[in-house]
Design a protein around this nucleic acid. Structure first.
Length: 937
RNA sequence: GUUGUAAUAGCUCAAUGGUAGAGCAGUUGAUUUAUAAUCAAUCGGUUGGAUGUUCGAGUCAUCCUUACAAAACCA
């Protein structure tokens, strides 16, 4: 054994069980098991009982498919908030939930079981849906837990729980009671082969050939229109001209729409006068083959509002109306309007109080009583309509047009728009719109543009159609009068009865119910409504079904947090239903995050192949890396992910992990109850880093409170790399290794490390939960089972120090200057380690006084073998000055002294002690004497 | 086409209208005393583009480009 090894054993080298290699993919699942077995979440509830509450209410993901990276971002952000609020001293329960009804699940179950009412009965089908949803929930739950998300996973909420279903119905009852429900009709995508309405997801667009026709609508008050156009008189008849590709909708025509701001011309063909848009008349004339024509006058569309026109083949007059949806890129600038057959026609029709006429039955045939076309299938009626138009001499032109048209995705046949009876939550009949806007104004929206966004939507949105003609959904459990369509007078009471039954038996209870059972003889006149509720209603009422139902939560929630797409979705459905029932928003604060995109800023899609699966990251890098990545981004905008970014994140993780490891390793043998040094007795350098950490903690807490986790990430990483790695830890190595094990010098530094690791483990716990818990078990001293049982670390009281942060910053500047000079010697191989060098500093008075305070310990701060202070006036030639360091010049040279084999400092006194001929004086003292004393660093 | 949000170094983020900064990565070197670690030095920018306003613009205004999101629409 060499002599060096003998002395090596006298050093206090770092030692720890905390592995350098994280092995997160293997380690994390064990930690999860441990959390689960010990019932961590429930224990935490007991510990936090009585604290002020912080309620982050979980928006339910849809129970279908594997979780993707967007889910992961959402859940991790929520988890970081829950955990940081917990550490901040709040009782922050987390009840995860799932959205379980609705079309996507139906479609998947249809593939297995067939269509309800065709291959299977509805009840069997609904059971199939329930099973399917349950399996989806189970799968997603495992992945969410694997992310390290802490919550009541054993008791989540599911919108298909019987009690939940019952409370959906109850909430609907309250909304009815408050007067917000209304029955109306609305055009929906309708497949005549299915005999049913189609959801947006069931519609696909294909090219279709349609007859494109130009039709005359004769002006009734010819004189009035002539004068609007500034024309004195004319014997010729005046016709507005519309252009359409769906002649079969003409029987339902109720108006002709013009654009208020377009210019329209009145032109004469010699045989008649036509009204056409200025920008379109040339095309139209070409289409009609008219070469000789004359413009007689012009006017704005708005001037023609309310003029009456003759329907082309029915004995009725229809008004001219105005709409911004009229465009000038095709047609005539005058739009045939049939509110029963088109969404825009419907909404503009509402403004003008037009009749929503729907003469078409579920099978696509004109209903009995439809003049001229009774019993005809709509697409077969097109030629008949043309014949009638020719007969009446109102058809100006006809050609075939190939255009994009909606088709049924199942039958591949063209679909139609058909007005059907639907249930609506009215925005205005009981003032819901105003209430919602007022409530939105009282809510804090983060980022703040969310407020304008939601307000804009509230101002403009139409009534909410909450009915769906579907099987897997919560019923609109009301009785409707067969003749009047009015609700049963006892509706509110009946709904409570139904809700009680549903909470026992689920929604099947309603579908199987005989009306007689509930309303007795009234059953003759009343029928059960068969529609189900829009699933947005289900999730929208979680404030009633979850927040108000779960004891650990309280209304209104402190925070909702979802992707920014939910302004249109859940934030809005929650706001409307809550305001309808409670007059206030269900949340005090709404936070949104953006969407995950790839390195080029493109959205992730399977077809592009740029998808990064969270499962894969967890299996390779580990959940803590995924969590650290989430924390590192400014999530208010787009969230970028790529292999490079994840690699950088893993680098940052290793830096944090290794810093913690080194601190633990230097606390070997440290028992805080025995060895902690009182703050007033610690060395100034150690006190300084403790105070530094304490101030940093304040910044970190503030960042957590403002949900700015990327600042936490930056600050923690910076602290590890700069304050600790590049300075403090580097400087104290000498003291840790070479002084006596139980010396104040060493214990003082360990005290600092102890306070820092206690604090830092808490700082990272909300983000690097697995790593924090791993660290937690290795921090010296007594601790509760989990870091999450704690609150932010209480640092020892600060003492006023002459050597404050300003002082050390100046010392640091000197250190940087020395490093630069040493680098020169290193590059020409004069020295290797900085301990091979010695430094002469030529200082002005103030700097000399300042540096002299460290006495002969300055060399330890500069990590060099000797430092000598001189007056600046004695500066010799060759002394170097730095712009950043005025008042100091320095010379660095290789030491000529012998190197101590134990501490590696080059010292004059090496070899003076004959028993330890290779040691310097202080090492002799440390090895066989009373040990060296340090005063400053 | 409409509305909203965004664009700063290879990456992640900073910069009350006042000299564009950090950290990481890269490069080079040191280190058998943090060694699949650590330390040091060093390189890196016409702030997406263009016009304004201003003594002065990354920041304010207008337009354009690109991306993301939303609600639609094609009669």
């Amino acid at each position: 054994m060499s002599k060096q090894n003998i002395y090596k054993e006298t050093l206090n080298l770092p030692k720890t069980k905390f592995a350098m290699k994280a092995n997160l993919a293997q380690r994390e699942p064990n930690m999860l098991k441990q959390w689960e077995e010990s019932g961590l979440y429930n224990k935490l509830r007991e510990i936090a009982a009585g604290r002020p509450k912080f309620v982050l209410h979980d928006g339910p993901p849809y129970a279908n498919g594997n979780i993707h990276i967007g889910h992961a971002v959402n859940k991790i952000l929520k988890d970081i908030i829950i955990k940081s609020q917990t550490l901040g001293g709040y009782d922050a329960p987390y009840i995860p939930g799932w959205d379980c009804h609705g079309l996507p699940i139906e479609l998947n179950v249809e593939k297995k079981l067939g269509k309800p009412g065709v291959k299977v009965d509805a009840k069997t089908f609904r059971n199939g849906c329930r099973d399917y949803a349950r399996k989806q929930v189970a799968g997603q739950k495992e992945d969410f837990k694997r992310l390290g998300v802490m919550g009541d996973w054993d008791n989540p909420y599911l919108t298909m729980d019987f009690k939940f279903e019952a409370n959906i119905i109850r909430t609907l009852g309250k909304i009815i009671d408050k007067g917000h429900l209304h029955k109306g009709s609305k055009p929906v995508h309708w497949c005549t082969d299915c005999g049913s309405a189609l959801a947006e997801a069931e519609v696909e667009y294909e090219d279709k050939k349609s007859p494109a026709i130009d039709v005359r609508f004769k002006v009734i008050d010819q004189q009035a229109v002539l004068s609007i156009f500034g024309v004195d008189s004319s014997e010729l008849s005046i016709n507005a001209v519309i252009w359409t590709t769906t002649p079969w909708t003409l029987p339902a025509n109720q108006a002709v729409a013009l654009h208020p701001d377009f210019d329209y011309v009145l032109l004469s063909t010699g045989s008649e006068l036509l009204i056409l848009a200025e920008d379109l008349y040339e095309n139209a004339m070409a289409r009609y083959g008219v070469e000789d024509f004359e413009i007689l006058g012009r006017c704005k569309g708005a001037e023609l509002e309310h003029q009456k026109l003759q329907h082309p083949f029915y004995d009725r007059q229809v008004p001219v109306i105005l709409g911004d949806h009229v465009t000038a890129d095709s047609g005539t600038g005058a739009v045939h309007t049939a509110p029963g057959h088109g969404q825009e026609d419907y909404s503009v029709g509402l403004k003008y109080d037009l009749e929503v006429d729907n003469p078409v039955g579920p099978n696509g045939c004109f209903v009995s009583g439809t003049e001229l076309f009774e019993g005809q299938y709509v697409f077969k009626a097109n030629p008949l309509v043309l014949e009638v138009l020719k007969e009446k001499n109102v058809l100006l032109h006809h050609e075939e047009l190939l255009h994009s048209y909606p088709h049924c995705w199942r039958h591949k046949t063209p679909i139609i728009f058909r007005a059907t009876p639907q249930w609506f939550i009215s925005m205005d009949q009981s003032g819901l719109r105003g209430l919602a806007i007022a409530a939105a104004q009282k809510t804090v929206w983060l980022p703040d543009w969310g407020k304008a966004r939601i307000e804009g939507m509230m101002e403009n949105r139409p009534d909410w159609c909450i009915s769906r003609q579907r099987t897997w959904g919560v019923p609109i459990a009301v009785f409707v009068h067969n003749e009047t369509q009015e609700l049963h007078p006892d509706t509110v009471k009946l709904i409570e009865t139904i809700a009680q039954r549903v909470s026992e038996n689920g929604i099947d209870d309603w579908f199987e119910l005989e009306a007689v059972e509930l309303i007795g003889d009234d059953a003759e006149n009343y029928s059960k409504a068969t529609d189900t509720l829009d699933v947005w209603f289900d999730s929208g009422v979680t404030h009633a079904c979850v927040i108000n139902e779960r004891e650990e939560l309280q209304f209104p929630a402190d925070l909702y947090l979802e992707g920014s797409d939910q302004h249109r979705g859940w934030f809005q459905s929650s706001l409307l239903t809550s305001v309808a029932v409670n007059d206030v928003a269900p949340y005090k604060e709404v936070l949104t995050h953006g969407f995950v995109v790839d390195a080029q800023g493109k959205k992730m899609s399977k077809s592009k192949g740029n998808v990064i699966a969270p499962q894969k990251i967890m299996k390779t890098l580990g959940a803590d890396i995924l969590r650290l990545w989430v924390s590192s981004t400014d999530y208010t905008g787009e969230i970028t992910v790529s292999d490079e970014i994840l690699k950088r994140t893993a680098d940052a993780y290793r830096r944090i992990r290794n810093t913690a490891r080194f601190m633990l390793a230097n606390m070997d043998g440290f028992d805080p109850s025995e060895n902690c040094v009182a703050i007033k007795d610690t060395l100034p350098l150690d006190r300084w880093i403790i105070v530094k950490a304490e101030y940093l903690q304040q910044e970190i807490i503030a960042a957590y409170e403002q949900y700015e986790f990327h600042l936490v990430y930056q600050k923690v990483h910076n602290f590890c790399a700069m304050d600790l790695g590049a300075f403090y830890l580097d400087v104290i190595k000498d003291r840790q290794y070479t002084t006596q094990e139980d010396s104040v010098a060493r214990r003082s530094a360990q005290t600092a490390l102890y306070h820092i690791i206690e604090a830092m483990t808490r700082w990272i716990a909300p983000i690097l939960s697995f790593t924090a818990e791993e660290l937690w078990t290795l921090i010296p001293g007594e601790h509760p089972e989990s870091v999450f049982f704690e609150t932010w670390y209480a640092f020892p009281e600060e003492v006023q120090d002459e050597m404050d942060d300003v002082y050390w910053q100046q010392v640091l500047k000197v250190r940087v200057a020395c490093s630069k000079e040493m680098e020169k010697l290193r590059s020409d191989k004069t020295i290797g380690s900085s301990l091979d060098a010695e430094v002469d500093l030529y200082c002005d008075t103030s700097n000399k006084t300042l540096l002299a305070k460290l006495e002969n310990e300055l060399r330890f701060v500069l990590i060099t073998s000797e430092v000598r202070l001189h007056d600046l006036t004695d500066k010799p030639e060759g002394a170097v000055e730095f712009e950043e360091l005025p008042g100091i010049a320095l010379i660095v040279r290789a030491s000529e002294q012998t190197k101590c084999v134990r501490c590696w400092h080059h010292r004059e006194d090496v070899g003076r002690n004959s028993e330890h001929p290779e040691l310097c004086g202080r090492c002799v003292d440390n090895v066989s004497g009373n040990g060296e004393v340090r005063h400053y660093a």
